[in-house]
Write a protein that binds this DNA or RNA. Structure first.
Lengths: 151, 151
DNA sequence: TATTGTTATACTCTATAACTATA
DNA sequence: TATAGTTATAGAGTATAACAATA
């Protein structure tokens, strides 16, 4: 049975991607752009360098994503108060509203999924998923450290 | 707690992507190309149209992916026995070997992850994940049918 | 007429390298 | 000298539309 686990996880990946895509169909948003919005929602106003680090992508890439988001009215670039090289990127009011809606929908989706599991098994399943996530994180970190030894 | 569920699932997504990327670093393969190889591994020789349907991407996209894979020696285009418009795409011997290795590694990873869960909870957790996958699948299907009513 | 795959065109995501303005 | 962001260039994934060959 456990050989099926990765297939299940891959299926969940794919399904969540499709579900997300539906959530912002009709907007000029893409998955990557929404990832930027999530970062800003969680961390507040950030420099492009911070966003690049959080998303593990190049600075150039962030420039393009912010260009598109700024153009669509989702974020605004403002002067950094102390570092004149840097800009601060922040969500506009309408983007904050948009993220509030997405967050609510995520919560509803999670509740719907969990409600399918028998009540007395929910805690075990949630703990199991957390365990899997933690182990996977550890494996990926270890692999990264092996390839890229302490600088 | 259940509000964290989606975050866990998103984290698993991201981690599996990174782990996969490591698995074929150094090859000319990308995530999308490997997705094609998986499809061929599971379904055997397929037309490009079948691959496009399985991956839910455009025919043009499949053309490009197959071009790249053919160029790298992973797949081969052969004539369709009965339909002269179509081509059959199939894995080369070396690609079959490559996929065998990937499949074995997937199995090992799944076993490692599952072994972190207390033995007496494994069945419950695996069943819970399967339940979540099924429900998610159903929600996505329903949404697709609502937008795109039976033609 | 409908379908398979390709050509043509375009947008997005991604990266590296060089450059400008600032620290 | 080092860092933040942009310009320049390039590869990859994705889509739609038009077209050729074949069903």
């Amino acid at each position: 049975m456990s050989t099926d686990l990765l297939n299940q996880l891959f299926a969940i990946n794919e399904l969540m991607r499709r579900d997300m895509a539906r959530a912002f169909a009709g907007t000029p948003l893409t998955e990557s752009r929404v990832a930027v919005l999530w970062t800003l929602r969680m961390s507040g106003a950030s420099t492009q360098r911070d966003i690049a680090a959080a998303l593990d992508v190049s600075g150039k890439n962030v420039s393009l994503l912010i260009d598109a988001l700024e153009n669509g009215g989702y974020v605004r670039r403002t002067a950094h108060p102390t570092d004149r090289r840097a800009v601060l990127v922040e969500l506009t009011d309408s983007a904050e509203e948009f993220m509030t809606t997405m967050q609510r929908e995520h919560g509803e989706l999670a509740a719907t999924l969990v409600s399918e599991i028998p009540a007395d098994e929910r805690a075990t399943v949630e703990r199991g998923i957390a365990t899997i996530t933690a182990k996977l994180q550890q494996l990926v970190d270890d692999a990264a450290n092996t390839e890229d030894p302490k600088p």
